[in-house]
Design a protein around this nucleic acid. Structure first.
Lengths: 271, 271
DNA sequence: CTTGGACGATATGTCAGACATAATAACGCG
DNA sequence: CGCGTTATTATGTCTGACATATCGTCCAAG
């Protein structure tokens, strides 16, 4: 996707490894988001990594540039290269998301953070799509849904059209910035379906919920699309809770986020 | 911010130019998002850029890695390096946003796309902040607001605390992914206040709207915070419309997005 | 005339070694 | 003991070379 490690297209995680710089960035980036390096200060130096990866300094430095462009590291002349604090990471970048979700079991807190953001963005996107879709963009949503129906029995076959469905809705908003959330949705769905395929059975139950979203969009019902998408995400939230335990609150205690309750309301007032 | 060009902190745009790779990435990236290169195919080759910037191939290649990490270009062996289509750009990256907004007059459509996304994300963030804020995070919101009041007479002094106010709210959500929207908010506010300082007068009128957001957060009123933030953004939308003309619809016609109407409703059901 | 394979040209990918630069750490002097 | 000077060290930049994957071209066979 970026020319980089994230060339892992759908659910497949292991392949990765493209060119030298991508490989190194993949491994180092993964380690950083996993918390192997304290908020500030000092990842291994360039020449240390040269030895460790059997690569030239050129390649290591290119890997550093890839990571620095994603907010994971920063270099200064004599002090060396340091891992940046979490709030500097480009959390909406496809690779950062993938790295953070790939680590054995990503921290549950992060899974819920993702869900909460999806619960904000995707219903709004569905509403916008209901208002703005064209014959072409609508067709790609319908095509993805049709394939979901066909794969309703198999959790792994289901993942790909599911992702396409949600991305097609984002594309139908006719909003460049909304489209960029595809990375988030793709990453999140990747984990969720992986988890679902381990625990739950066939994804068939979610088909009617998707159908409701599509139907609302087809009839240009923005409020309905918003509500239907919210319902769909609430189901996902319940599944995740079943699998990784209940949602963690702030430092402990309070709770917020998407869960039951449909809650109908449009994303934004139409002028 | 990324170690890269975007070290332009607040509103100042020109400085930029840090290290060689950053400088080249800045210029090339800016050109790409400005549409100087057709959706696919062929930015200048490495050695051509070497001549053009008086730099070595090493540095040019590092610049390429910076840009490829942001989804702007992709290289293949013999064919050369090509500009990627808009839908591949990491539109939520601080640098990409800055480049896209810096070009003389950014396309109005993009300004409204940004506004629509802010109208989805920030009210929800305000609601989450109302639920999740701690003494520390609340204090940083209050501090930013206090400074806004003090600078209420000067559009340019106003910009910095304004940005801090919105980012502090995102931080108070206690949601890693929400925090990442700070780049979007910062970029958008940068342009809006720049535009406002040209056309409108003092930013004083927006102070009460900000105060309403703060007050709702203080009393942990999620719905109120949502509504207040939406009202604030609606005002911004009106200002932008006044300055750059009315919101463009799809390929022409339809309209969607934030505008008048307060519309009160919370970002998400509280379990 | 079309089809297929061989071959050369070309742009990116990788490497090794050198020097420049800045910031830190160590040293030594007053 | 404080402070300026010097050494050290990791990143930044440059150079020139070779490796590798394609894309175009051309020629020969069908």
């Amino acid at each position: 996707m970026t020319d980089m490690p994230s060339s892992r297209r759908n659910g497949r995680s292991p392949p990765a490894a493209v060119d030298g710089a991508g490989r190194i960035a993949d491994e180092l980036g993964s380690a950083i988001v996993a918390g192997l390096y304290q908020p500030h200060e000092l990842v291994p130096g360039e020449l240390a990594l040269c030895r460790r990866f059997g690569a030239s300094r050129t390649v290591v430095r290119e890997a550093f540039k890839l990571l620095s462009a994603k907010g994971l590291i920063a270099s200064r002349k004599r002090s060396g290269t340091r891992a940046r604090p979490r709030e500097a990471w480009h959390m909406l970048d496809a690779d950062v998301l993938a790295w953070r979700l790939r680590n054995g079991q990503a921290e549950p807190k992060f899974l819920f953070d993702l869900l909460h953001v999806r619960a904000v963005v995707e219903p709004a996107a569905a509403a916008m799509a209901a208002r703005s879709h064209t014959p072409e963009t609508l067709k790609s949503i319908e095509a993805a849904f049709a394939e979901m129906e066909r794969a309703a029995h198999d959790p792994v076959l289901f993942a790909d059209p599911d992702i396409r469905f949600h991305k097609a809705i984002l594309a139908a908003t006719d909003n460049d910035v909304m489209v960029a959330f595809g990375a988030l949705t793709e990453a999140a769905l990747g984990v969720f379906v992986r988890a679902a395929s381990r625990h739950a059975g066939a994804p068939a139950p979610s088909v009617p919920l998707h159908r409701a979203v599509l139907a609302a969009i087809q009839r240009r019902d923005a409020e309905g699309a918003h509500a239907a998408m919210m319902a769909l995400l609430s189901r996902t939230a319940r599944n995740v809770e079943r699998n990784v335990g209940p949602a963690p609150g702030r430092n402990k205690g309070r709770d917020n986020g998407p869960s039951r309750r449909g809650s109908r309301r449009s994303a934004k007032p139409s002028k």
